[in-house]
């Protein structure tokens, strides 16, 4: 099936219905393997077993950024190419990206707790992630505020693009701000990465990617169905006397 065929929502639904169980199953398998590898990976000589939070933390961070990239492409799709599924994809990706960002923050603060003695320090990486999380919440709030999906889509697309431009600037600014203050900066990912650590990490990253793909497809399917219900209900009001 060509990618262009998926532009049709009905064909997309058929595709999603067939793909979701397979993707879900694959996600479970890769997750199981990845977690197993992470268990077998060596402990850190300083941090002990705590370091294994990294296998959840780092992929979450990657995926939280990737979700914004997906939203950016979708935003271009909405504004430039007027692709019928673009705003569905954008709306679906926002809460998922936000959830990954939150997971990254939670695992980060749990990881930092034994090091820092507190759940949160204004570490440069975590702080940037927090700002990203806030941006996701803003996008979700925007989607929830405008009832008409087409109008919400354009507003959210513009916000997403501005965010995509601003995110690197935010990252740079936060780094600069952090070095200026020389806070209690331990740095979570300090040491060079050995292959024994890298391999499970990459498996976990693959598992997270699959998880994202599954959730994204399911959320897009739900959103398409939700819009159909909305259209049917609108038509019911129109055709009633």
């Amino acid at each position: 099936m060509a990618l262009g065929d998926l532009a049709n929502p009905s064909r997309f639904l058929a595709f999603a219905n067939r793909a979701i169980p397979w993707l879900g199953g694959l996600t479970v398998i890769v997750f199981a393997f990845g977690l197993n590898q992470a268990m077998l990976a060596p402990n850190d000589y300083q941090q002990g077993a705590t370091v294994k939070i990294m296998y959840l933390h780092v992929p979450s961070a990657w995926l939280s950024m990737m979700a914004w990239a997906v939203m950016t492409v979708a935003a271009l799709g909405t504004l430039v190419w007027r692709h019928p599924l673009a705003d569905v994809a954008a709306k679906a990706a926002a809460p998922i990206g936000g959830a990954f960002a939150l997971l990254c923050l939670i695992t980060g603060s749990l990881w930092g707790r034994p090091e820092w003695g507190t759940y949160w320090v204004w570490d440069a990486r975590l702080t940037s992630e927090l700002v990203l999380f806030l941006l996701y919440l803003g996008v979700v709030a925007l989607w929830r505020t405008v009832e008409d999906p087409a109008r919400a889509a354009r507003a959210a697309a513009i916000l997403t693009l501005v965010g995509a431009i601003d995110l690197p600037i935010i990252k740079f600014s936060v780094d600069w701000w952090n070095t200026l203050h020389q806070g209690a900066s331990f740095g979570l990912e300090g040491s060079t990465i050995y292959p024994t650590i890298l391999f499970p990490l990459l498996i976990m990253a693959a598992a997270f990617m699959l998880l994202f793909a599954t959730l994204q497809l399911a959320a897009m399917r739900n959103e398409i169905l939700r819009r159909r219900v909305r259209t049917l209900r609108l038509m019911r009001a129109r055709t009633a006397s």
């Binding site: 507190t118 320090v121 806030l134 806070g183």
Partner: peptide, 28 residues
């Protein structure tokens, strides 16, 4: 409901608090 904005207040709360350390500095 949609457009009701019950939780936007909490979001605003979170954003304002999260911005403070950028102005004040991260000294715990």
């Amino acid at each position: 409901r949609v457009g009701g904005g019950a939780l936007i207040g909490v979001l605003f709360f979170l954003v304002v608090v999260a911005l403070m350390p950028f102005a004040i500095g991260p000294n715990l």
